[in-house]
Nucleic acid binder design. Structure first.
Lengths: 352, 352
DNA sequence: CTGAAAGCGCTTACAG
DNA sequence: CTGAAAGCGCTTACAG
C-alpha cells in the first residue's frame, strides 16, 4: 500500500503461479542461495547493499522461506508448544493471545497441547510431542509448570522451555515469575483497611503452588497488622465453583460469621456468592468478598467482584518472547509480572 | 506395555542416542525405504508379513517419521489451523479440545490463529498463514466462518477448510451445521409452556448469522403457538455483557415489564441479571430468563441460568475429523450437531 | 563478504 | 508387491 513503485517489475505474490523458492531469489538477484540464506537468517556477513537488493526482491515476489524446509535442515521446527492442564478457559485463551502477540510475524506458530497431569504417562506424551515436532520450545503453564519431573525431561531431551510459576523454581532464563503472593497481600491490606477483623480465607488445593503462595501472601499481609487468621477461618477447597460453595457453607453456617472472605480464585468467590445469596446474606453489606484472577466472571457477578488481576496476557507474551528471542533475554532475565487489586462493588466496611 | 517380548532386541526408543530415520528402519528390517514409506502412509501395496515385521521394528526402536521431512516432500504440513475472531473464551477452548480429540495420535497438530475480521487485510493474514505453513486444512469458527470472501480465498489457494455455522452455506463436505435455530425454538417452547405470554428478546448483532438464526428460531417457536413478538419487545445488542445491560435497561424500565426474557447468549443474560438485581426485580419470581451457550457463567450466576447448550466440543471434534479423515466423510457428509435446553433455576410460571 | 557441494528425512514418479 | 534415482527447499561445514 505505501511508497515503493516499480512499474517495470510489477509486484506480484508469485512467479508463474507457484510460490518462489530460495533458488528463484538467488537467480533473480544474481547471488548464491547461501547469501539468500544468510539474509533470511539475519547473518551480519552480508554487504548492506546486497542485503537491501535481495530483500527488495523478496518483498516484490512475495517470497517467504518454507518453514518445513528450514526446519528439516535445522533439525528444529518453528513451532512453540503451549502445555497446560486444565486451567480456566479465560486463562488459557489470554495466555495464547499473549504468546501470539510475541511470535507475530516472527515465523513461529503456536501449537496447543493440553494434557492431564494426573495421568501417569503425561510426561511421555509431552516428550513425544516435543521430539516428534522438534519443537523450538515449550511454554509450561501452571500447574504443569510446577512439575520438576517434566522440566527435567525437557532438559534431558534438549528442548528449551519457559516455566510460568508464582515463584522462581528454575534458572531465571527459564522462568516467568507471577508473584501471586503480592496480589494476595494487597487483598489483605485492602480488607484490613476497610476495617475487617474477622476475615476468612478459602484456599486452592495445597498441591498447587499458587494456592500456597496466595495463602501465604494473605496471611502475611494480615500479619503485618498483627492480625492472625485462626485455623477455623481457613478452608481448603479445589479452585472450583462447587468446592467454593462447600467451603462457603462451612464458613457461613454458624452465627459467628466472618465479615469478609478472600478466595484463591474467582470461581470459588462465585461459590461464596451463591451461598450468601440463597442464605439472604447481602454482599457487600453483610459480607465482603475478594477474589483472585479478575476473570470475566468478576464483572458479571452482582454485585461485581473485587478481585486480584493477573496480567495473564503479558505473562504469555513474556514467556513466548523468551523462547523466540533468547538473545533479548539479558533484559528479561529476571522476567516477572505482578498482580494487582481491581476494586469493584463487593466490599465495604463491616457493619457496626 | 503389553504382550510383545523380544529378549534379543530390547525395546529402546533410540539407536545410539539419536532418533532413527526411515533409512535405519529400512536397513534393519531389510526392505527398501520406499516400502517403509508405504507402510508409514498406509498403502495397501505391502505384503502383510512385511508390514507386520516392519511395524514391529518401528515400535521397538520408537521410530516415528519426521513431520517436517514428510511435509517437505508432500508440499503440505501436518498442521490444522483454527481461525477465529474473538468468540468467548470457553467457546474457543472447547472447540480446541474437540479438535484435539479428533487429531490425537494422528500425527497432526493444532495451530491457533485468532484474527480480527474487522481489519481490512485479515484475509491476507489468513492466506499467509495457510500458504506459508502449507496447512493441511483450517477450521473456520463463527463468525469468520460466515465470511464468503475468506472461504473463496481458501478455495482459490487450494487450502481445504471446514466451516462451522448455524446453517449450511457451502458444500456439505465443508460444513458443520450447528442448528442454532432449533435451540432457540426450544427456549420459546419452554417459556410458552410455563405460561409466559409477554416475552422479550435480546438478540445478538444482526450481522451475525447466529443472531439471526436464534432470533428466527425463537420467533418461530412462539409463532407455533400463535404468539407474536411485538417490535418493542425485541432489542438488538452486541453479544456482550455491557450491551446486555443496556438492552435490559430498556426492557425493564417501563411499568409494563415482560415476564420473561430470552437472550442470544449467556453474556447478555448476565446483563439482564445485573439490571434485575439492582432494580429489585427478582429472578425467577418476577422475571424468567433464558440464555444461550450454557457457558460456565450460566451455573455461576444466582439463580443459576437456564440456557441452551451448544455441543461445542463435539462441533470441534467433528470439524477437525472432517479435515484429517476426508475418507470417513461419507458418514459425516451431512455433519451437524444440535443444541438443547438445559433447565436450571432462572424460570418459573409468571406471577398471577 | 560469497559460493559449490553435500545433506536434512522424507516422497514421487518410473521401472520392474 | 518392491526398489534405485531424483527431488522437496532449505542449511551446514568447508573453501575461498
Amino acid at each position: 500500500m505505501p511508497a515503493r513503485k516499480k512499474p517495470e517489475t510489477p509486484a506480484k505474490p508469485t512467479v508463474s503461479g507457484k510460490a518462489s523458492t530460495i533458488n528463484d531469489i538467488a537467480r533473480l538477484s544474481g547471488v548464491s542461495k547461501k547469501t539468500v540464506s544468510r539474509i533470511i537468517n539475519h547473518s551480519p556477513l552480508v554487504r548492506k547493499d546486497t542485503r537491501e537488493k535481495v530483500e527488495a526482491l523478496m518483498r516484490e515476489v512475495g517470497y517467504s522461506p518454507d518453514p518445513m524446509a528450514r526446519g528439516l535442515a535445522f533439525r528444529k521446527s518453528f513451532l512453540i508448544g503451549m502445555v497446560y492442564d486444565n486451567p480456566t478457559a479465560q486463562y488459557i485463551v489470554n495466555m495464547q493471545y499473549g504468546a501470539l502477540d510475541a511470535i507475530r510475524d516472527s515465523g513461529f506458530e503456536l501449537v496447543v497441547h493440553p494434557c492431564d497431569s494426573r495421568s501417569p504417562n503425561y510426561i511421555d506424551g509431552v516428550r513425544r510431542f516435543a521430539q516428534q515436532q522438534k519443537l523450538h520450545g515449550v511454554m509450561l503453564v501452571p500447574r504443569v509448570s510446577e512439575d520438576q519431573a517434566l522440566a527435567d525431561m525437557l532438559l534431558e531431551i534438549g528442548c528449551r522451555y519457559v516455566r510460568i510459576a508464582p515463584v522462581a523454581m528454575d534458572d531465571m532464563s527459564r522462568m516467568v515469575v507471577t508473584h501471586d503472593r503480592d496480589g494476595a497481600a494487597e487483598a489483605a491490606d485492602y480488607l484490613y483497611m476497610l476495617g475487617h477483623r474477622d476475615i476468612a480465607l478459602i484456599t486452592g488445593p495445597n498441591n498447587y503452588r499458587s494456592a500456597l503462595e496466595r495463602t501465604a501472601g494473605f496471611v502475611e499481609g494480615l500479619g503485618r497488622y498483627g492480625l492472625e487468621l485462626p485455623k477455623a477461618r481457613i478452608v481448603e477447597a479445589g479452585y472450583t465453583f462447587e468446592s467454593g460453595v462447600s467451603a462457603a457453607e462451612k464458613l457461613l453456617a454458624g452465627k459467628q460469621r466472618p465479615t469478609a472472605i478472600f478466595t484463591g480464585n474467582d470461581e470459588m468467590a462465585a461459590g461464596v456468592y451463591k451461598v450468601a445469596m440463597r442464605s439472604g446474606i447481602s454482599i457487600p453489606q453483610q459480607l465482603s468478598v475478594v477474589g483472585f484472577d479478575d476473570s470475566p466472571l468478576a464483572s458479571r457477578l452482582w454485585p461485581s467482584l473485587t478481585s486480584v488481576r493477573r496480567p495473564t496476557r503479558d505473562t504469555g507474551r513474556l514467556a513466548a518472547s523468551m523462547l523466540v528471542q533468547p538473545d533479548a533475554m539479558a533484559t528479561l532475565s529476571s522476567a516477572s509480572v505482578r498482580p494487582h487489586l481491581v476494586i469493584r462493588d463487593s466490599c465495604q466496611p463491616p457493619e457496626n
